[in-house]
Design a binder for these strands. Structure first.
Length: 224
DNA sequence: TCATTAAATTGTT
DNA sequence: AACAATTTAATGA
């Protein structure tokens, strides 16, 4: 099992840190275990940390006034989120639910702010991350009308496969069909059906406990 | 190494 | 939602 220190050292944004700075970040960042179904953070809470997934899978979601839930993104091992709320100094705008037992890193606001103020490379990373996220959301909005479950499943998987945001994610995604269902807002049965359609189309291969992505680009544009 | 069992995941209705 | 089938992981002979 990777330790918190190891996970921080291998994070993409940590590659631009000097050894002393990395050590300082490691000493200031804490880890918490979140059981499946638990919250890493909740909407409306004051934002005091930048949050990273050391190990596991987290779903970012909002609930509308009518109580309808919408998934914004899935964050797998190696992903970090919450920089938007930190930058704007506003309450958390979404829930982060662990879809499986997960180990979550919490970097204090002061640490995050220091990196932002002192490290150009860290700023460049954040710019890229925000840009990738924006691209995801644009794609989401553009395809919102197409409620075709096959396409939704395809998009969820393609987003998870984002190699910049989640460098640890390889073509073999370790994710159950049930978890895909939570991310894409589709029943597990329908996920099963969609996966077979996508497999028939040659975009991926289903396996026990996961799927292997064969054609990421086609997956992203499926149904468009 | 092999057999047994429990747990997780998948396939189907 | 429920059920059966399949795969994996863990256990002990």
């Amino acid at each position: 099992m990777t330790t918190l220190a190891e996970a921080l050292r291998s994070a993409i944004w940590a590659q631009v840190l000097a050894p002393e700075e990395l050590a300082r970040v490691q000493s200031e960042t804490i880890e918490r275990e979140i059981p499946a179904g638990g919250y890493a953070c909740r909407e409306g809470e004051p934002v005091n940390h930048w949050i990273g997934v050391i190990e596991g899978l987290v779903k970012l979601s909002v609930v509308s006034a009518e109580g309808k839930a919408a998934t914004l993104a899935g964050v797998p091992t190696g992903g970090w989120f919450g920089e938007g709320s930190l930058l704007r100094t506003e309450p958390r705008r979404y829930d982060a639910v662990a879809l499986r037992d997960s180990r979550i890193a919490f970097m204090p606001r002061a640490t995050f702010t220091r990196l932002l103020d002192t490290n150009i490379g860290f700023n460049r990373f954040l710019l890229n991350q925000l840009n990738e996220r924006l691209g995801q959301f644009i794609g989401m909005v553009a395809h919102e009308r197409l409620l075709d479950p096959d396409a939704r499943v395809a998009r969820s998987l393609a987003d998870l496969f984002n190699t910049f945001l989640y460098p640890g994610v390889t073509e073999k995604l370790t994710i159950s069909q049930e978890e895909i269902g939570y991310l894409s807002g589709v029943s597990r049965q329908r996920v099963n059906q969609a996966l077979r359609a996508l497999e028939d189309a040659g975009l991926l291969r289903t396996e026990y406990g996961g799927v292997t992505v064969l054609d990421p680009a086609a997956l992203r544009s499926y149904g468009a």
